[in-house]
């Protein structure tokens, strides 16, 4: 897959970091504001997709990246399951219970496990969307060949 013009490359270089940071912000503030793991993860995935689209890449590299991101995806959802499963052994001993201290409403570190769930979901969604994108791009390249 070819890259785009130098203008697009330069603009991408400038804004891609901001998009990534914004995604991280949405993920970490999921328990306080609208958004959360899914929305933030989609934004983070968007920043990666923008990079691949603007700079282009050859198919072997894309395949390698797809393998990597699918492993990260599985790890993200596995982290979620471990967090939920840990609740069976801690505190009230109920699956999915919120076993960490709740803190004060409105502060960043509050709401117990929910921010951790959001981070796990964020990792999972970002990696999953990126994997889907890469898979579709790879199919397309293979069809054109």
């Amino acid at each position: 897959m070819n890259g785009m013009t130098p203008i697009v490359k330069k603009v991408t270089q400038l804004i891609v970091g901001l998009i990534f940071l914004y995604g991280i912000y949405i993920i970490t503030h999921g328990h306080l504001t609208p958004g959360g793991g899914f929305a933030g993860g989609a934004v983070v995935a968007g920043s990666f997709i923008l990079l691949v689209l603007a700079y282009g890449s050859d198919i072997l590299k894309l395949k390698k990246r797809e393998e990597g991101s699918s492993v990260v995806e599985s790890l993200g959802i596995f982290l979620f399951i471990v967090l939920a499963f840990a609740a069976i052994f801690i505190g009230t001993k109920v699956f999915f219970a919120n076993y960490l201290p709740k803190g004060v409403i409105g502060e960043l570190i509050s709401a117990g496990v929910i921010p951790l769930y959001n981070i796990a979901v964020g990792i999972e969604v970002a990696a999953a969307l990126f994997t889907i994108f890469l898979a579709l791009v790879i199919y397309k390249e293979e069809v054109l060949k």
Binding site: F38, I132, A135, L136, Y139, K140, E142, V143
Partner: peptide, 20 residues
């Protein structure tokens, strides 16, 4: 919506393979 995302990407992946 999340579920819809999964079904749609699945459908599109199959559509591309069908085209191939």
């Amino acid at each position: 919506i999340v579920i819809g995302l999964a079904t749609n990407s699945m459908l599109l992946a199959i559509a591309i393979r069908l085209y191939k």
